[in-house]
Design a binder for these strands. Structure first.
Lengths: 186, 186
DNA sequence: TTTGTTTCGGGACGATCGTTCAGGTACTTT
DNA sequence: AAAGTACCTGAACGATCGTCCCGAAACAAA
């Protein structure tokens, strides 16, 4: 079993990845509504037909983008948890910082993620990918209290969504008491 | 100052309302992406030019729809709180029931609301309308604990969003322990 | 009735859309 | 070298899009 010696497939995979990255940039900038074959192709610097060749339809492209996005998010959270653990902290500070980053410098990315998330609500084939990052969290964090953990996850989502319609992103200091409350055992 | 004696304006307002209702139905069915002048006009049973006449652009139409939607939601929540109070309960049962309804029979409507919500993240002129229902809640519920209330609101949003990507909607019984935890004072 | 205002709606314009097709290129296998 | 496979891409098709134009109709004020 040889892996990836075919130069053609190698180039194909590379271009596929470039197209997915371009798609994510387009969603960050213009939203899911702004995703078209031509726009994505222009963003990626490839001819229009290249996107239709590698992704049989627009839906396929969006599905691939969501899957890639969910994987990135999962690994990112993985490292955050790892970082928090190595510091021996309970993570509230890390979480608050991550939230304020998600709502500030990375606001476009956060919007893109939730747009894809909502898309999964409409397209069942997207749901496994959308659920993945929840699953990753669930499997990583020890949950001595199942209910408390579900509340925590829901709270994070709610804070992010509500933070997206604020005129200016909340700071980590503003978020801190809410996150503390959310993570406080009882 | 006479109000609404002009039959022309009366008809115009009525048609405007019909177009907005049709728009909401289209969003429930096809999402914000499915909203076009022609589709909305067909749904409302009016000629295409009627939607462009009453709403100078598609954005205007979506803005009007979000505002109308937010108002409906606010009054609905108002009555729920009123109902819960008259029963003397703390509301956990009512909240769990409302959530399971929002994720079950009214799933399309819930998706539409969150899509419009996310649209507000991209279009600043939509944000006041999107924030309104949060404001209504904040003003109605006595908040002896500010932080706890923010956590509660975020938790509701998170539960709804996560429930939207479940393959089958959670029942009120499943939701109940989480809602209880969310509303439990400490 | 005449004049002015508001709503209505058929038709059309240019733009952009998703997708297809056929020919060409690059690479692997036989 | 020949055949086979995978990728690339310019051109084009039919459909749909937002929006505009302009005359007709309904209604109010004179």
């Amino acid at each position: 079993m040889k892996l990836q010696v075919d130069g053609r497939k190698a180039r194909g995979d590379k271009r596929r990845a470039e197209i997915i990255e371009a798609t994510l940039r387009v969603i960050e900038r213009d939203g899911v509504a702004g995703v078209t074959h031509r726009i994505v192709a222009a963003e990626a610097g490839v001819p229009t037909t290249s996107t239709t060749y590698h992704f049989s339809s627009l839906d396929d492209l969006l599905i691939a983008t969501l899957i890639s996005c969910a994987r990135d998010m999962a690994t990112e959270v993985y490292w955050m948890i790892d970082r928090a653990r190595s510091r021996g902290s309970r993570g509230a500070e890390e979480v608050a910082g991550l939230l304020s980053e998600a709502l500030g410098p990375r606001r476009g990315r956060t919007m893109a993620e939730y747009e894809l998330y909502l898309l999964a609500a409409r397209k069942p084939e997207l749901r496994p990918a959308a659920r993945r990052w929840l699953d990753v969290l669930t499997s990583m964090v020890r949950h001595d209290d199942e209910v408390a953990f579900r509340v925590f996850l829901a709270g994070i989502d709610g804070l992010l969504i509500q933070g997206l319609i604020d005129d200016e992103p909340p700071s980590a200091e503003e978020l801190r008491p809410v996150v503390d409350y959310l993570m406080k055992p009882r």
